[in-house]
Nucleic acid binder design. Structure first.
Length: 314
DNA sequence: GCGACAG
DNA sequence: ATCTTGTCGC
């Protein structure tokens, strides 16, 4: 009688069902794309940084992407692509759309769940409103702070050939970087907005930085390079975009996607709130059959995703 | 083997 | 990611 834990169980179940061949394939894809990753500032980034430092004044566009989920649903979600002007930080473009996620969430493989959907939205923007194509995108998740040095921000950056910055709200423990007592101590030593400390991996490489993004938020965010931007530029730019803990591009994307879900599915959520009685194991007459069944066929689940990377067949 | 694990 | 209450502050 553990109904409440079912969603968690289901997620764990999915992960354990994932065939090694698929993970291997995904790892190979990551390694392949990683060769195209660029870790220096693009010319646009250099201009924006100059603007930050008051050396020039100009207008720039910064993108933010985020995905919000339908409660208790691991497939249906709303993706948002937002563009803000900089340094004003006003929303100049927003696009929300319902999506279906084909792959499950697996730490280290987030890109295979989200990247291609975000890519589609970016292409839509490029096609319909090219004047709003941003010079850089902030991504929910990590860049090179990743088990294989190629997180979602890198992945999306390479796919779009656009500068991307990874902004994570939680530390992904990678390459010896742990959320231990020492880490917690360093966090306590971040006394004001703009303070940072380096996240140093085993090989003494700096994989990212923890940034206290504003005075009012003691918990840092974790910045790492995605593509075509250096870590220091990324940190500076993110900090300039922080009215709150989460930088505005990402935050606006989060707000807009949740709002979209609330308007579309709000009533159904209300139903679930009416729990004068306990669990409503009643038949959800909508799809009483296997249609809404979670995952009993893994191959079916991965069919679409796999096709994306099947181009290498002889 | 055990724990950790972006969203 | 999502759930959840009140509370403190600009």
């Amino acid at each position: 009688m553990n109904d409440s834990g079912s969603t968690v169980d289901r997620q764990e179940e999915q992960q354990s069902q994932i065939p090694d061949e698929i993970k291997d394939k995904w790892e190979r894809e990551q390694m392949k794309l990683k060769k195209q990753m660029v870790l220096t500032d693009s010319s646009d980034i250099s201009k924006i940084i100059s603007c930050c430092q008051g050396k020039t004044s100009d207008n720039f566009l910064i993108g933010g992407v985020d995905i919000s989920f339908v409660k208790g649903d691991h497939v249906n979600a709303c993706a948002a692509l937002i563009v803000l002007n900089f340094p004003q930080l006003e929303v100049v473009y927003e696009d929300c759309q319902m999506i279906k996620l084909t792959a499950p969430y697996i730490p280290g493989f987030l890109a295979f769940r989200e990247a291609y959907l975000l890519e589609e939205m970016y292409n839509k923007l490029k096609k319909t409103q090219p004047q709003y194509v941003p010079q850089v995108i902030m991504v929910d998740g990590n860049g090179i702070l990743h088990p294989r040095g190629f997180g979602l921000a890198c992945h999306l950056g390479v796919l779009l050939d656009t500068p991307c910055i990874g902004v994570a709200k939680n530390l992904f423990q990678v390459d010896g970087i742990e959320n231990d007592d020492d880490h917690q101590l360093k966090i306590k030593q971040l006394s004001k907005g703009g303070d940072t400390f380096k996240l140093v991996g085993t090989s003494c490489k700096v994989l990212g930085k923890a940034l206290r993004s504003c005075d009012s938020a003691p918990n840092p965010i974790y910045i790492s390079t995605g593509h075509k931007v250096t870590l220091d530029s990324a940190v500076e730019l993110v900090y300039k975009c922080c009215k709150h803990r989460v930088p505005e591009p990402t935050r606006q994307a989060d707000i807009k996607s949740r709002e979209y879900l609330r308007v579309s599915f709000g009533s159904e959520h209300e139903e679930q709130k009416n729990k004068g009685k306990k669990k409503q194991r009643t038949k959800t007459t909508k799809h009483s059959n296997s249609e809404c069944n979670p995952v009993d066929n893994v191959e079916e689940l991965f069919e679409d995703t796999c096709c994306l990377f099947d181009g290498e067949n002889t």
